[in-house]
């Protein structure tokens, strides 16, 4: 629980907690969760059960981070099927596209579909849902997803946000999954 509080505080301090956030972690056969917002820990986690089901459906992930981040909410309500990566770290850590799950469809199934392949997606009316093998990975994915949303929306507000070239994005994602994921796992095991 202390680790969850620490991660929640970190994400709050970085400004992406918004009005409703949640962090869930697999713990043996159970799932622990912590609800919070920009003002601190809260009692109301909203529909925790749906996020427990989503986490259960992601065997490679141990942690799910849900964040009501401002610009992800904005982009989730104003954009189409995805936000293209216009920053190279977004392409590396999340992928060429950050997919958006809109209301009206099978929200749970669509979140599971995207998080099975990518470390974060944007959900209309919710913000970011990110996953990871540990809380650092999930938090990083959440922070990068919000940055991607700001870069896309903000970049287009001050000019024209340019997409990362296809091949560059694929190379960076491949290198990241091969190299940096292993470094983090090694440190975790220490």
């Amino acid at each position: 629980m202390e680790e969850l509080k620490k991660q929640a505080k970190y994400l709050t301090d970085t400004g992406i907690a918004g009005d409703a956030s949640l962090i869930l972690v697999k713990d043996g056969g159970a799932v622990k969760h912590l609800a919070y917002n920009k003002d601190g820990v809260t009692a109301d986690g909203g529909d925790v059960a749906i996020y427990e089901e989503i986490l259960a459906a992601l065997p490679e992930s141990k942690v799910l981070a849900v964040n009501g981040a401002q610009f992800s909410l904005y982009v989730g309500g104003t954009s189409g099927a995805f936000v293209p990566a216009v920053l190279d770290d977004v392409a590396q850590i999340i992928g060429r596209k950050t997919y958006i799950v809109h209301k009206g469809g099978d929200v749970k199934a669509n979140i599971i579909k995207y998080l099975s392949k990518y470390s974060a997606c944007i959900v209309e009316g919710v913000g970011i849902v990110a996953c990871g093998r540990n809380s650092d990975e999930a938090a990083t994915a959440a922070l990068v997803a919000e940055k991607g949303a700001i870069a896309y929306a903000g970049g287009n507000a001050v000019g024209k946000a340019k997409k990362i070239p296809f091949l560059d994005a694929v190379i960076m994602r491949f290198v990241y999954k091969q190299k940096y994921s292993k470094i983090d796992v090694v440190k975790e095991e220490k």
Partner: peptide, 14 residues
Amino acid sequence: AHPYFSSAFAAAGA
């Protein structure tokens, strides 16, 4: 560094 809003300017070449 990779700050949020400066990076948006970098994405737009602004």
